[in-house]
Amino acid sequence: MFQIFTDFASWLVYGQIGLTAETKLGDALHFFVEDVSKIFVLLLLMIYIIALVRASLNIERVRDYLADKHKGLGYILGSTLGAITPFCSCSSIPVFLGFTSAGIPIGITMAFLVTSPLINEVAVLLLVSLLGWKFTLLYVVVGMGIGIISGVFLDFINAQRWLKSFAAEALERGRQESNVADPHEVESTITMLERHRFAVEETTDIFGRVWKWVILGVGLGAALHGFVPDGWIETHLGDGQWWSVPAAVLLGIPLYSNATAVIPVMESLIVKGLPVGTTMAFCMSTVAASFPEFILLKQVMQWRLLAVLFSLLLVAFTLAGWLLNIADPFI
């Protein structure tokens, strides 16, 4: 099914431009053209189809759904909904406050917010097309697991103590109101035409945001692919070096990016022999632990809670990386 993109890249790079597969440049360029054309076509197609389906799912619904859930189930649901709900990091503050003022425990809210950037339809799509089903499933399970565990842990330590006072008050008020009455009822039926319009808007919006990241990510991946000698990564950053996982996590923090750009880089790293766990730890840290996101959260959280959350994520990514590296031979 993806063969057409390989053929297209061969036609363009070897046929039209006249490079050969034996040169580094030819190899790298072929990789770049193949991946970019494949990702662009898949993105446009899949974002549209997924948006059609979920046009009626909005954040208010998610909140109402989470508001009256039993706690244990709440973490799992929070994380699942975080994975499937369309969400941009510029909305984290209103979403956080909306959930909080509906009396949803901070752990469930954070399960949603932690999972959200890690897993989304674009990430899953890229993972499946570049790294295959097995790896995608592993990524989704680990990502959701980290979201759920972070949520449980934050409630366990009573993290709401360290919210900014106005947010803590909103949480308290929300808890006392027994049932959450939604002041602005969302229209419940939507026509096919509205779905189509929403999907077109969503596709242009998401594509407009991520296309440059795809080019950047695939470009980096192509450079790795063409110019880093085979075996170099394996020798220097392979399984034997336990510190390579925390190092990858630390390296990922200042690199703020979204999943779209990191996944093509992951592909190259794995092909070049970087262990799966190390690669995944790097990717998750790049996507989910970023300074801009934390500066946003500072508006509703005290420093102490931010520090806890940050450390929690870094420890979780490192542990997940180690575990995956150990489990890798058995998968």
Binding site: N58, I59, S91, I93, V95, G98, V300
Partner: peptide, 16 residues
């Protein structure tokens, strides 16, 4: 752009 305002109007997705 203040979080207090978003809370006051019950806004969960922006722009509102």
């Amino acid at each position: 752009s203040s979080p207090e305002a978003m809370l006051a109007y019950g806004v969960m997705s922006t722009p509102a």
